[in-house]
């Protein structure tokens, strides 16, 4: 199934135009821009990580599948960052390449390194189940641009979700070694779950206006989806307090040690040629 995914000229033409969603020139409010930047940074940082798998995946079909998921996420990031930039007159590339680490707003989950394939799949499971609930709810956003981006993205994230679920089942139900690795990956990933569902001032304000959705309200559906997968896979969802003390500063620009090197690599060429166009 995943092996058949290719990018044709039409899809790419749409990708070139930043997924075709530019909000018809709508300018984001300061709050909506900050919110779009959070979502855009989550997508961008995850896409950057998935891009590293290409030529290194366990099967050629996975080079294609992980690349395809990364490509979808780049599309989401471009739309979201484009919209975020309208508030301050910056382009998607200004935001992606010319912000420093403290200005990035992604949650910690997305900047955690690929690890082995099981760790990537555990991260993909959490990310795609969360994003599916989030974008599904944001289809109803009072902000038309955010609603349009969410409506396009949710369809793609649905496929990402299926990809992650299928692999969790295979790794948990495969060999002793794959099961051991999958359990370790889930344990290592779970401390980063809480941050995704924190309601801070910004989202509370935006949710009151119907622009954003309160992350805490997504958690029951997320956990039900996780439980369904884990029951079939014979895995246990880590419960209780798993997060570290003081974890989860991503939305305020406090990051783990992993984001800096990731950005340094991503930005190096663009920053070596200020003002150049590509």
């Amino acid at each position: 199934m995943h092996g058949s995914v290719t990018v044709d000229e039409l899809a790419l033409a749409e990708e070139l135009a930043g997924s075709g969603i530019t909000g018809a020139g709508r300018v984001a409010s300061a709050d909506a821009a900050e919110y779009a930047m959070r979502l855009g940074d989550d997508a961008l940082v995850l896409a950057q990580q998935l891009g590293m798998w290409i030529t290194r995946a366990p099967e050629l079909e996975e080079d294609v599948a992980l690349g395809n998921i990364g490509l979808d996420l780049i599309g989401h990031a471009r739309s979201l960052l484009h919209y975020a930039g309208t508030a301050t007159g910056r382009s998607e590339d200004d935001l992606a390449y010319w912000r420093g680490e403290p200005e990035f707003r992604n949650a910690w989950l997305f900047e955690q390194p690929n690890g082995d394939f099981a760790h990537t799949i555990a991260r993909q499971l959490v990310a795609s189940l969360y994003l599916y609930e989030l974008y599904g709810a944001l289809e109803e956003s009072a902000d038309e641009t955010i609603a349009a981006i969410a409506a396009k993205s949710v369809k793609e994230v649905d496929y990402h979700r299926d990809h992650a679920v299928q692999w969790v089942l295979r790794l948990a139900g495969g060999t002793d070694e794959s099961r051991r690795r999958m359990i370790l990956a889930v344990t290592d990933t779970w401390p980063y779950v809480d941050e995704l569902f924190v309601d801070d001032e910004l989202v509370t304000r935006l949710a009151a206006d119907g622009v954003a959705v309160l992350p805490s309200t997504l958690r029951p559906a997320f956990e039900a989806a996780v439980d369904a997968v884990f029951t079939e896979a014979g895995l246990e969802r880590p419960t209780g307090r798993t997060a570290f003390i003081a974890s989860g500063g991503g939305r305020a620009g406090r990051h783990t040690e992993h984001l800096g090197p990731l950005l340094a690599e991503m930005q190096v060429l663009a920053r070596s040629h200020p003002g150049a166009s590509w």
């Binding site: 590293m52 080079d63 294609v64 471009r78 590339d93 040629h273 590509w278």
Partner: peptide, 29 residues
Amino acid sequence: ESNWITRAPSLKRKAILMAKVQDEAGHGL
């Protein structure tokens, strides 16, 4: 080509390059 995916100088170029390398995997298949 995958050597430049992580360092592509714009998001548009990154998307095009990822799509291209992915096409090549498809051709191989």
